[in-house]
Design a binder for these strands. Structure first.
Lengths: 335, 335
DNA sequence: TTGAAAGCGCTAACAA
DNA sequence: TTGTTAGCGCTTTCAA
C-alpha cells in the first residue's frame, strides 16, 4: 500500500507537496500538481484516513443514534439526515440503541473516543434525570422529546400542538368517543405523554370528557401491539368511534386489528396517526396523519451540529428548535 | 483530554502498562492494574480510536453499502447485519448508494482508504461488466444478485426458485392470467430479471403461455410506481387474475392501486410479493410473499467477511451462499 | 512483570 | 512555491 512518502519519492517532491495536492491547497504549480497526480495514479495511492484523523483530530463522521434502523419513522429520519450532512461533507454512521438508556450512553462515549466529530442522539431511553450526562465536551444535538432545556441543542416535534390538531380533526369529523393508543405510562416526558397531553387538550376544547377506558396504553409502539390492542378493544365491547394513534407504526397495526374485528374504517371508526411515514399514503384505507416536516428537522439538527463542530470554543447558548406540522387528511378519517 | 501518557504518569507506570491494562493483556499484576484503572477513572481517560486505528491498521468497523436505508427490505437487512456483526465486536457503518453504480464504487474505495476493515456491498447499480473492479485487496462480500462468480464472496437469494414457487402458488390458487410487476428490463442479471425467469418457469410448468401484455415493467420498484401501474392495468382493461410482484414494496403499491380501482383482493385478483418485510403481515389484505430468511443471509455475510478480515493472506477460494426460502401464505392469495 | 524505543501516515507550522 | 521538522496517541518489538 503506497504512502504519501512513496508518492513524494516517485514524483520527486516532498511529502508536503503531495499533501497540498491531495487537499487542493493553492500555491502548487500546475506542472508540479500534475507530476504528483500522475505518481498518485501510477502507485494507486489512497489516503490513509486513520492517519489523517489522528493528525487532524477530526474524523469527518458524525454519529446518529436511533432506537432502530428498521422502522418507517427512523428510517426516514436517517435518510433526511444523511442528505443534510452531505452538504457539510460529513459522513453519517448510524448506531442502533434499541431504545435502551445504556446504549444511548454508549453512543455518547463513542464520540468521546474521537470516533465521531459529533452526535445526533434520539433519546428514548434516557430521561430528564440524565440531563447531567449530556454535559459532554463535544458537539451533541438531541433529536426527540424526552430532554428539554438540557445543556445541548435540541430539535423537537410540536408534539402537544400537533396531537391536539389531530384529535380536533377527529372531533370535526363527528367522533365523540375518541380513544388514544399510546405507549407505556411513565413519570417522564416522552412522546406518548406529550401526545396524550395534546389529546386531552383537544377533548377539553370540544367539551368532551377524558374517559380512562378510552386511554389504551400498549407496551411497545409496534404494528403487532397495535393490531392486538385494536382487536381487544372491539372484542371487549369498548364503545369508540375514533382512534388517535401516537405513531403511524402503531396505527398500521390498529388498522389491521380493526379489519380483523370486522370494523369498517372510516365508516364506523376513524383513525389518525402521527409521523406521516411513507407507507401511510398507500395503506388501505390510506392513513390520515400528522406531518412534522422531517426534512426541516433533519436539516436543522445537522446545521446545529455542524456549527458546534466548526466553532472551537464551547459556546454555551443552547438552541431549541420545534418544527412545523400539518394535518394530512386521508381515507382513514373520511378523506 | 487525557492521553495514555497522562494516565501512565498519574499511576506511576509506563504507557505500555496502561495499554496492557486497557487491552486486558495478562501479565499485569493485580495491584498495578488497579492503580492504573484508578488513574484512568480519575482522569476520565478515553482511548483515542484514531490513534489506535493508525497503529493497528484496523478500525473495527465494517461498511454496509445499500441502495437506501429507508426501505422496509434494506432496513430489515441492516438490522440483521448489525446484530450479526456484534458477535465479532464489529461496528457497522451504513452507506447509502442510491442504487447508483458510481456510489457503489465510492463505497468500495472508502474501505480502501482504511475507513472500514471490510465491506458488505449490495450491488444494484454495478453489473457483471464491473466484476473486474471487485478485485480489490481488502475483504468484500457481495450481497445481492447482479454479480455472480466474481472474485469475491457472495451471498444471494434463491431468486429464480423462489419466484417460481410464488408463481406456482398463484397457479395452485386457480389463477390463469398471472401478471408480473417487475423493474426495468435491462441486459443484465438483476433481481427483476432473475425473478422474471422464475415466473416464466412456473408458467411453463403449468402449461400457461407468457403473455407479453401481462409483463409489467415499472421504472422504480416503489409503492408509488406499483399503485400507479395497478390502476393503469385495470383502467386499460387488462385481463388478469393474479399478480406476482418482484418485491413487497411494489406489492404494497399494487394492493393500493387495486383498491383504488375497486378490484377486490383476493376475490378477483390474487397478489403475492417477495421479501416478507415486516409490514406485509399487517396490510389489509395481509400480503402473501416469499421469506428468504434474512437473518441467515446476514449472519452468513458477516461470517464470510469476518473470516477474510481475520485471515492475513489474500486467499482465493470464493464462496457462494444461497439462502433458503419459504412461501408465506396470507390473505392476498386467499389465506 | 514492566519499560524504552520506534514508528504507523499524515499535516500544521515554520523556514527557505 | 516547496521543503523540513515535529508530533498527533497508540501499540509492536525487544530488552530488562
Amino acid at each position: 500500500m503506497a504512502t504519501i512518502q512513496d508518492v513524494a519519492k516517485a514524483a520527486g517532491v516532498s511529502a508536503m507537496t503531495v499533501s497540498n495536492v491531495i487537499n487542493d491547497h493553492p500555491n502548487v504549480r500546475k506542472a508540479t500538481r500534475e507530476k504528483v497526480l500522475e505518481a498518485m495514479a501510477r502507485l494507486d495511492y489512497r489516503v490513509n484516513v486513520a492517519a489523517r484523523n489522528l493528525r487532524k483530530g477530526r474524523t469527518g463522521t458524525i454519529g446518529l443514534a436511533v432506537p432502530e434502523v428498521n422502522s418507517p419513522y427512523y428510517g426516514r429520519l436517517a435518510v433526511a439526515i444523511i442528505a443534510a450532512a452531505e452538504r457539510y461533507s460529513l459522513r453519517v454512521c448510524i448506531e442502533q440503541t434499541g431504545a435502551s438508556r445504556e446504549n444511548e450512553l454508549d453512543a455518547l462515549s463513542l464520540s468521546r473516543n474521537r470516533l465521531y466529530d459529533g452526535l445526533i442522539l434520539s433519546t428514548v431511553g434516557m430521561g430528564p434525570a440524565d440531563v447531567e450526562l449530556l454535559k459532554v465536551d463535544y458537539p451533541v444535538v438531541i433529536l426527540g422529546e424526552r430532554i428539554f432545556g438540557g445543556p445541548v441543542d435540541h430539535v423537537a416535534m410540536p408534539n402537544v400542538d400537533a396531537s391536539r390538531a389531530a384529535t380536533r380533526h377527529l372531533v370535526e369529523r363527528g367522533c365523540r368517543r375518541i380513544a388514544i393508543v399510546r405507549g407505556p405510562v411513565g413519570e417522564e416526558v416522552d412522546v406518548s405523554s406529550l401526545r396524550f397531553t395534546g389529546y386531552r387538550q383537544a377533548l377539553r376544547d370540544a367539551g368532551l370528557p377524558v374517559d380512562p377506558a378510552l386511554v389504551q396504553s400498549v407496551e411497545t409502539l409496534t404494528m403487532r401491539s397495535g393490531a392486538r390492542r385494536a382487536r381487544e378493544m372491539v372484542d371487549g365491547g369498548l364503545d369508540f368511534d375514533g382512534v388517535f394513534c401516537v405513531t403511524d407504526t402503531v396505527a398500521m397495526g390498529v388498522l389491521r386489528g380493526l379489519a380483523d374485528a370486522g370494523v369498517p374504517v372510516p365508516e364506523r371508526v376513524k383513525v389518525i396517526g402521527f409521523d406521516n411515514v411513507e407507507e401511510s399514503e398507500f395503506l388501505v384505507p390510506a392513513l390520515s396523519t400528522i406531518d412534522p416536516d422531517h426534512d426541516v428537522m433533519a436539516q436543522r439538527a445537522v446545521d446545529l451540529l455542524a456549527r458546534r463542530i466548526e466553532q472551537t470554543e464551547p459556546g454555551s447558548d443552547h438552541e431549541e428548535f420545534v418544527s412545523d406540522f400539518s394535518v394530512v387528511i386521508r381515507e382513514s378519517t373520511g378523506g
